[in-house]
Measured scan of single mutants.
Amino acid sequence: MASDGVVVEIGKVTGSVGTTVEIPVYFRGVPSKGIANCDFVFRYDPNVLEIIGIDPGDIIVDPNPTKSFDTAIYPDRKIIVFLFAEDSGTGAYAITKDGVFAKIRATVKSSAPGYITFDEVGGFADNDLVEQKVSFIDGGVNVGNATPTKGATPTNTATPTK
């Protein structure tokens, strides 16, 4: 695992066909100046998982989280898009600690492993708008004895992609 920078880890949970599971997305290594904004994309298989919603985690402190935390689910493109932009203008609602960034709610549709993997990152910046190093650890849903650990090695991303 990367020793510096922010680590975004997609949790690994267990479920069975027809059940709804909650998959946490963790941030670790949050910089001392916090995270003022970030955007990134995960990939998944809508034939295996139906993403039914995404909720902000406990490290989102904006009293009205829909102003700073936004997501979009595109089953036709097989992606989930995340956007966080601190909304106070003063840094008061920045992410300042490690913990759960988001909770992905999904219904298991198939007995195949439900991988959720890193696809791309736009950027991560602290309260001074300084770009942060970030790496990703894939996860998803274990169905029966299947284990979604494909790509469990962190993917280092030093520069934003478009």
Rank of each mutant, 00 (worst) to 15 (best):
A102E: 04
V21L: 14
G151R: 09
D62S: 15
S68T: 07
Y44W: 15
I54F: 02
G140E: 06
E9I: 08
D4S: 04
F82A: 01
I51G: 04
I10D: 13
A92K: 08
F82K: 01
E86V: 00
F118L: 06
A72C: 01
A92H: 11
S111C: 14
F42L: 07
S88P: 02
K33T: 03
Y115H: 07
F82R: 00
I104E: 01
G57E: 12
P160D: 12
D119M: 07
I23T: 06
K33V: 03
N127M: 02
R28F: 11
A106C: 14
T71C: 04
D58P: 05
T96M: 04
I80T: 05
V134C: 06
T20G: 06
S3K: 07
G123F: 00
V7H: 09
P154F: 10
F84V: 01
D126A: 02
V100E: 12
G57C: 11
P46D: 03
P148L: 04
N64H: 06
G114K: 09
V61S: 12
V30K: 08
N145D: 09
G29R: 11
V100M: 13
N47D: 11
I35A: 08
K103F: 11
D87W: 15
A92T: 10
N145C: 12
L129S: 02
E120S: 04
V17Y: 14
T20V: 09
L49Q: 15
V141M: 13
I10S: 05
V100H: 07
A92D: 13
C38P: 00
T153G: 14
I116V: 07
T155G: 09
T107K: 09
T107R: 13
I59L: 07
V100I: 10
I95M: 13
A2P: 08
I80S: 14
D126P: 00
G57P: 11
R28D: 10
I73A: 01
I104F: 15
G89V: 07
V121F: 01
F118I: 02
G34F: 04
I95S: 12
S32H: 11
P113W: 04
I54K: 00
E120V: 03
A152G: 12
K67T: 14
S16V: 07
V143N: 05
S3G: 15
T107M: 08
D45C: 07
V134P: 12
G91P: 14
T107H: 10
L49V: 04
P63A: 14
I73Y: 04
T155Q: 14
S68G: 11
D87F: 14
S110L: 12
K12Q: 08
N64D: 06
T19D: 08
G151M: 10
V21T: 09
K97S: 11
E86K: 01
K78Q: 02
G99Y: 10
Q132F: 03
A36S: 02
P113C: 09
E120R: 01
N145P: 12
S88D: 03
A102M: 13
P56H: 08
I137D: 13
L129T: 02
D45M: 08
A158R: 12
A146R: 12
D98P: 08
I73Q: 08
I10Y: 04
G99S: 14
I104C: 09
T14I: 05
P154R: 11
F84P: 00
E131Q: 10
D39W: 01
V7N: 05
N145L: 11
D87G: 14
F118R: 04
A112S: 08
T159W: 14
V13H: 03
S3F: 13
T149S: 10
N145G: 07
D70Y: 15
I137P: 07
D119Q: 06
T161H: 10
D58R: 12
T14K: 12
D39T: 00
D39I: 00
I59K: 14
Y74K: 00
F40C: 02
A102H: 04
I10Q: 04
A85W: 10
S16W: 01
F40T: 02
P56F: 11
I23Y: 07
A158C: 13
F118Q: 10
R105Y: 14
N64F: 05
Q132V: 06
I35K: 01
D62R: 14
T147Q: 08
S68H: 15
G122C: 01
V17R: 09
P63Q: 15
I35F: 03
G151L: 10
Y26V: 04
F136N: 14
T14E: 05
S111K: 15
G57A: 12
L83N: 01
F40W: 15
I80F: 04
A94D: 03
V6F: 15
I80M: 08
V7K: 10
D58H: 13
N127Y: 02
L49W: 02
I51W: 04
K103R: 10
D45R: 05
T20K: 14
N127G: 03
R28M: 04
T149K: 10
T14P: 09
A106K: 05
V134G: 02
T159Q: 14
I35Q: 05
I54D: 06
S111L: 10
N37D: 02
G34R: 05
P24S: 05
V25R: 00
E50D: 12
G144R: 12
Y115T: 09
K162N: 05
V7M: 15
Y93T: 14
D128F: 05
Y44R: 02
Y44D: 05
P31L: 03
T147K: 12
E86M: 01
K133R: 11
K67Q: 12
S32I: 11
G91R: 08
S68N: 15
F136D: 10
N156K: 10
S68F: 05
T19S: 10
I95F: 13
L49Y: 15
G151T: 14
D138T: 09
I116M: 03
E22Y: 06
D98C: 06
D138G: 06
R28S: 12
Y115V: 11
G140R: 13
K78F: 02
A102S: 14
A72E: 00
L83V: 01
D70P: 03
T147V: 12
D45V: 05
D45A: 08
V141G: 14
F69E: 02
G89R: 01
S111M: 03
F124V: 02
T153I: 08
I73G: 01
P148K: 05
D55E: 12
Y44I: 13
A112L: 11
I54M: 03
Y115S: 07
G144N: 13
D98N: 05
K103C: 15
I59M: 15
D138K: 13
I104W: 14
T20S: 09
V61E: 04
D119H: 03
N156A: 12
D55G: 14
R77G: 06
G18F: 04
G140A: 12
Y26W: 01
D55C: 13
C38H: 00
Y115W: 14
T153N: 09
G89P: 04
K67Y: 14
N47L: 05
I10N: 12
I60Q: 12
I60D: 07
F136R: 09
E86P: 01
I104T: 11
I116H: 06
S16E: 15
K133D: 03
P31F: 05
V13N: 07
P46Y: 06
V30W: 02
C38R: 00
D55M: 15
A146N: 13
D128T: 07
N127D: 06
G91C: 04
S135P: 04
E131S: 04
A106M: 08
Y44P: 02
A106P: 07
A85E: 00
G140M: 15
I73P: 00
T71A: 02
F82L: 03
A158E: 11
K133V: 11
Q132E: 02
G11I: 05
G18M: 08
M1R: 06
F118Y: 05
I137T: 11
G5V: 06
A94T: 06
A92C: 06
P56N: 05
V81T: 00
K133H: 12
P148E: 03
P65R: 13
G140S: 13
I80E: 15
G15V: 08
F27P: 08
N64M: 08
F101H: 06
S88M: 07
R43P: 03
A106G: 14
E131V: 02
V21P: 07
A85S: 03
T90L: 08
G34S: 05
V8N: 15
S68M: 13
G99K: 12
S3V: 03
F69I: 03
G18S: 08
V41T: 01
G34P: 02
K103W: 13
D138S: 11
A125G: 03
K109A: 09
S32P: 08
D76S: 04
S88F: 14
I104D: 01
E50Y: 09
F118N: 10
E120C: 02
